[in-house]
Design a protein around this nucleic acid. Structure first.
Lengths: 217, 217
DNA sequence: TAGATTGTTAATCGATTAACAATC
DNA sequence: TAGATTGTTAATCGATTAACAATC
């Protein structure tokens, strides 16, 4: 599955391809050319072909790309052909929002448990997901290994929780806290720094540019 | 305030500089060199100097940068020297999570109102913010103009709401819905596509790279 | 003054776009 | 076969890093 190393810029675009192909599939479209897709996605056809060819030739000259095939292949590249166990650390609104969002489960991300230090929350079942006290984290994970942890807690405890999670075998950290985390090599950290996102809006409101939408996370 | 056009890559890094400088300030650090800062932030000193010089010389040879001064200047560049009125469209967990997060207000983003189509929500006050029915949007905005709208609603209604918001004078859209929005020129859209962020984690779990943390949003 | 560190130019590296021969 | 469109190489553009003279 892992051929030559794929550039960060390409990886960033893959989920967007996946989304557009999913929509095309839903609309019953069977084939699409890089040119048509480029029109819809607002990127160049050249970039699409260049991107896809990182993974091998999915297309056919004179025909284009088979939508379903390409969708499946990108899904595999993204690792969506398996499931991932996810725990949520911090059962506040943000944690619940994530737990609640059904589309993640559809893609294979299964939310198993939430953890919170607030005693009044533990024992509850929120949106079908049990909340445990943070003190139970290691015990829980030793019996129910998790692939990914979402950190939806105050930044003060993010680093400490990360260390505990990594020690307990979690390999991916989805970090919503406003800190940069130190992790051992091999551990994946994906940051969602909402306040930075918001500041980019204020910047752009005050400094009009050409066009284009903002980045995503 | 707007000199030559600043590259997207630089703008993306500005909030992170701002965050690190804020922390240094809190720690009572008065001056810092690009070299020291580069060590903390894990980027090159050269890049820091290059980035900052887009906006003019904030430093002093032989001394470095005055932390407070640089913090204030980057704040101004980011447009944080004024306040922004924000409305939230969709009063679910995600909307409430955002409304709830006090740090945004500290930076000048003031959440004024939430809107939701669910009749049982309107009339309520959630975290001190009133929830109105979506039908009231135009009436409300004509009396209480907003700069920014956060879209925390299902993707099906995102485009329609965007059109209404833009027509009512909103200039910045913070889009949490999983669609790309069409907007007139001059309107700022900042996407936070959480599912794409999550897929990048699964990709990276299956395709180990060298190092480095994931992008943010 | 000597030492430190910036501001800035030049060199390198990487990513995007253009072009076109291969081929379905 | 002729037309369409890919896969891929080459050209361009942009961003990052290195180097160093200017200067505090």
């Amino acid at each position: 599955m892992a051929q030559k190393t794929i550039s960060r810029a390409v990886v960033k675009r893959l989920p967007r391809y996946y989304r557009y192909l999913g929509e095309l599939m839903n609309d019953g479209v069977e084939r699409i050319s890089s040119r048509d897709l480029s029109g819809r996605m607002n990127i160049t056809a050249s970039q699409i072909r260049q991107d896809l060819n990182n993974f091998g030739g999915f297309g056919q000259q004179g025909y284009g790309y088979n939508v379903r095939h390409l969708y499946d292949e990108i899904g595999k590249i993204l690792g969506l052909d398996r499931t991932y166990s996810v725990v949520i650390i911090g059962a506040g609104h943000l944690g619940q929002a994530i737990a609640n969002y059904g589309n993640f489960e559809r893609r294979g991300f299964v939310f198993r448990a939430m953890f919170d230090i607030r005693p009044e929350l533990s024992g509850q079942i929120l949106n079908g997901i049990p909340v445990y006290p943070t003190s139970m984290l290691e015990t829980y994970l030793s019996k129910n290994p998790a692939d990914i942890a979402a950190l939806t807690l105050p930044k003060e405890s993010a680093q400490e929780m990360t260390a505990r999670l990594v020690a307990a075998g979690v390999r991916g950290i989805w970090n919503f806290a406003h800190v940069d985390l130190d992790v051992p090599e091999g551990i994946v950290v994906e940051n969602v720094h909402l306040s930075e996102s918001l500041m980019r809006i204020s910047y752009r409101l005050n400094n009009p540019e050409g066009e284009e939408q903002g980045e995503n996370g």
